[in-house]
Design a protein around this nucleic acid. Sequence first.
DNA 1: ACGATAAGTATAGCACACTTTACATTTTTT
DNA 2: AAAAAATGTAAAGTGTGCTATACTTATCGT
Lengths: 68, 68
Amino acid sequence: MQNRIQELRKQRRVTQQELADALSVSRQTIISLENGRYNASLLLAHRIAQYFETTIEAIFIFDEEETL
Amino acid sequence: MQNRIQELRKQRRVTQQELADALSVSRQTIISLENGRYNASLLLAHRIAQYFETTIEAIFIFDEEETL
DNA sequence: ACGATAAGTATAGCACACTTTACATTTTTT
DNA sequence: AAAAAATGTAAAGTGTGCTATACTTATCGT
């Protein structure tokens, strides 16, 4: 699964720390998500979508063959 | 977090087993999701939304105060 | 009443989402 | 060039999403 977090974050000129604080997660979580180390939980994905004023589907790009 | 999985499943007269098979998860996963034992992963949420031909936000009801 | 199908509970195990801390590297600013 | 800010890596720990198996309960048709 890919995501557009870094792209959206840079568009708005927000640092990882600022985004982390706004979402109430650690900065490591932001780094790991941006670098594709793992996927967000559904709840975090929702918060991210709200922060960027869009939908989950607009931020996370799902690859059909992915396994759970 | 609440979800409308059972409601949508019954609307379409699909059994838990059929839904599980369609989503490539176990029947236990469907039971647990319907009974609110835990939340779906982002990927599974996406598959569910696709199955029901709608969006993640239309199926999962997010409670603002929830913790990760 | 019986068997079949559907739905539920319980438990144990694995993988991964997220945390914390600490240190290293890169980029930006002055 | 040096300081400061931003980004990255690493490792260990906790919680939970999902699986598998096995047993139980409810519903329905015959």
